[in-house]
Design a protein around this nucleic acid. Sequence first.
DNA 1: CATACTGTCTTAGCAGCCTAAGACAGTGGA
DNA 2: TCCACTGTCTTAGGCTGCTAAGACAGTATG
Lengths: 130, 130
Amino acid sequence: MIRFRVDWRSGVPPYQQIAQQVRQALRMGVLDVGDQLPSVREVVAAAVVNANTVLKAYRDLEREGLVEARAGQGTFVRARPPGPPPGTHSRLGRALASWVRQARAAGLDDEAIESLLRVTLQAPAEEDIA
Amino acid sequence: MIRFRVDWRSGVPPYQQIAQQVRQALRMGVLDVGDQLPSVREVVAAAVVNANTVLKAYRDLEREGLVEARAGQGTFVRARPPGPPPGTHSRLGRALASWVRQARAAGLDDEAIESLLRVTLQAPAEEDIA
DNA sequence: CATACTGTCTTAGCAGCCTAAGACAGTGGA
DNA sequence: TCCACTGTCTTAGGCTGCTAAGACAGTATG
């Protein structure tokens, strides 16, 4: 059963973080069609967030067609998001992990690493900074 | 002169985005000690955000000792944030750009890429998903 | 039927952040 | 001195998101 992790310092709304963690688990193959998501009350009991917040995240995922809520039973994965299969993510993930090790060895902290990625992603579009 | 870019869909408060872009420019060497930041009114005129929002970002940077505000003159870079020199970031940035090209060629969009990094950064600490 | 799960909705309130417009103060040059 | 720039602060309002507690409905099981 997937377990959620909320970063309160990031400024990103918790309901968005939960939804995104589900999407990523689907892309990575950690979750698959038919799997059950933790019940709203389980997430609340884990002291992550309020019931309404979990509900909002699950509703977003339902609107995207990724999950399906059945009253009395739970919330289940209905489909996989568009994109490459899990194997592709695993392969790329290993390469990225190797790069992260280098970056950390060079003295970059997580914030510097994330900023570097953000710059890299925007780079080809336009000059982003300066 | 550095130019700011605000992503309104990210959920991250604009004042945090501005402050972070300055920090990253310092790490990358795009900004250096003595350089001037755009005036509050310039940023406002660029239709990025409100004056109070810019002020909040600059105040955060001042509290960190990175910049110094001088009434009547402007806001100037005072020091470089701790961490490796700009050259290190450039080198790592090129390697990362190469990886990003592979990921995009494999069909990953920006959200998938960012999620993959987030998972990778948390991975060694604890099992983050599942 | 009774119980214990499940998802769902309501109400009320609070906090953070952004906006708008204006006003004040310090600095430097004509 | 006057003007144009700079940072700074105030007031007032609004929007979004989170919290709390409770209540209702659907489903499965004994």
